[in-house]
Structures are given as structure tokens and as C-alpha cells.
Amino acid sequence: MSARPALEIAVTSPAGARAARENGADRVELCAALELGGLTPSAALVEAVAREGVPAHVLVRCRPGDFVHTAEEIRLMAAEVRSVIASGASGVVIGALTADGDLDTVAVARLVEAARASGRPVDITLHRAVDQSADPVATAALLPSLGLTRVLTSGGAPTAAEGRETIAAMAAAAPGLQVMAGGGVRPADIPSLLSAGASAVHLSAKTRALPLRGGRWIPLGAGGASAEQDTHFVTDPEVVAEARRAMEGEGRGPAPG
């Protein structure tokens, strides 16, 4: 019997973790700077989210941009892996590519080794570096032998709904791997992603927080083109609940085939 499909919500705060937990998420992916695609959160933030009682898989990504990392960056991220696990993470989300677009197996092995050094069971997910790789299907097939348990992917497309066929191919190529569909996922997309072979679904369920600043607004860095845009994302509990209902099959017709 196949396991129940899992719902993962990307969050950036303890409040987001509570919203996810209370509305049906099975786990959260915790990061900072969601608007930049996510960066490694602080140890204090990991500790706070771990106390919320929902499994927290923590993104380890030391900078925005591409996934071709220097040796110094890999050393830093290995230290971050150890730090977030010590702070209570139940999993880590990692990845690195070579300049040719292949999985950087040496770098990934080092990050996996850092995760295993904790001495307790830790889930290890390859993040969406897979979607910028030269061959997402071949990359997915490599992961079980490297000790990874999951891959987060849009199937190499701008959104998971558009990459549905590749997601199906990835699931077929790596039967021991949990293929988690993520990237622009809306609750309405979930039934078709599950029928394609995804065994988990990831979405941010985000909405812009209302600015609560006093005084006048001035731009700080790349914060936004206006006071309304210069804010941060928060988790929308209604979207989480809608996603949970979609995971349970409400309104879903029979799966094709």
C-alpha cells in the first residue's frame, strides 16, 4: 500500500508554522527571504519553529542566485546543516550543481555527511537546483545512492503544473525516492500532480503582509517599488486548508488510467 501523500508548506516564521499545522500540513519547509527563493534561516528561528510541533525541514542555501557553489560556500553550508539540525530541524533541504549543469555529487555528499553526523535520523531533500540541472530525470535517479530521501521539483518547468510529464518521469526513474511537486502550485493543481506520480506536494501558500510602518517610507535596497510592495510574505491559512482538502481528494474525479 502506498503511503498517504504529504503536504508541505514553505514558511518563514513560527506564525507560519502554526498556520500550516493548524490547517492540515504534514510538515513545513523553513527558510528566510522567501522572496529571494529562500535562504538559510537563523538558528534561533529554527528553534522557535521546532517548538511549534510540526516537522520542520530547513532550507540550507547560503546566498541567492545560481546553485554552482565555491568550496568556501560548501564548507559554510555544511556548517549550516550541522547548526540547523542541532537547533531542532527534522530534515534539511540542500543542493549544488556543477558549471555544466550536472549534480555536484562531491558537494552533495559533503552536505549529506554533515547531516548524518548528528547521529539521529534526518530527512534530506534535494531542492530545486534539480530544475536548473541539464537532466532533471537523470539527476533524480542519482539521489537514492547518495543518501537523499526526497526531491523538490517543478519538473524543470516554470511551474509544477507545466512540468507534470517530467515529474512523472522522475518518479518512474527513482522509485525509492519521494518526488515532491513544487513551484507555483495552486490547490487546484494538486489532484493532477498526484495522479502524475508525485508522492508529496509543496506550496508556499503565501500572501503579502499588510505594511504596519509608521512615519514615511523610503526604499531600502531592493525592497520594492512602493510602500505597498515593500513588505514580506506570510502564510495564508485559507490556502493551506484548501490544499489539504485537495490532498484528501475533495472534488477529485477518478485518476486517469
Rank of each mutant, 00 (worst) to 15 (best):
N23G: 09
G65I: 05
S87N: 13
R27P: 03
G37I: 07
A78D: 08
G65P: 07
L76R: 15
A43P: 12
C31L: 11
E8S: 00
V58D: 07
D66E: 04
A6H: 04
C62I: 15
L39K: 11
G88I: 09
A19K: 01
A10C: 14
R75M: 08
A48I: 02
S13R: 03
R82F: 12
V28Y: 02
V60T: 08
M77Q: 08
A71C: 08
I85P: 04
A43K: 13
F67Q: 02
V28K: 02
G88N: 07
R18L: 00
S42A: 13
P64A: 10
E35N: 12
A32K: 09
A15Y: 01
I74C: 06
A25T: 01
A6F: 02
C62T: 14
R82I: 10
S87C: 14
L30M: 05
I9C: 02
I74F: 07
S83A: 15
R75Q: 13
R51D: 10
R75I: 05
G65M: 07
G37N: 05
V11K: 02
S13M: 08
E72I: 06
D66S: 11
C31N: 14
V28D: 00
E80V: 05
N23R: 04
F67L: 02
V46A: 11
V49P: 01
A3P: 02
T12G: 14
A15I: 00
P14D: 01
A20E: 00
P41G: 07
V58G: 06
I85Y: 07
G88D: 04
V46K: 06
N23C: 06
L30A: 06
R18Q: 01
S87T: 10
R4K: 08
P55D: 02
E52K: 02
P5S: 00
R75W: 07
R61P: 10
A19C: 06
E47F: 09
A71M: 12
D26N: 06
H57I: 02
A86K: 14
H57R: 09
H69I: 10
G88E: 05
R21V: 02
A32N: 15
G88A: 04
H69G: 09
A48C: 07
A43C: 12
A86H: 14
V68W: 11
T40F: 12
V46G: 12
A50W: 05
R51E: 11
A56V: 00
S13Y: 03
A78M: 06
G88R: 04
E35F: 13
F67S: 05
V54P: 00
A3C: 06
L39C: 14
A6W: 06
I74K: 09
V60Y: 10
C31M: 12
E22V: 08
E8F: 01
H57K: 01
L36C: 13
R21A: 03
V81N: 11
C31P: 11
R21K: 06
A48M: 06
A86N: 12
V11C: 03
E80L: 11
V68I: 10
S2D: 14
E72N: 10
E73K: 11
G88S: 05
S87I: 09
E22H: 14
D66I: 05
L34G: 03
S42F: 09
L59G: 12
E35R: 11
A86W: 14
T40L: 11
A48Q: 10
A86D: 13
S13E: 05
A78S: 08
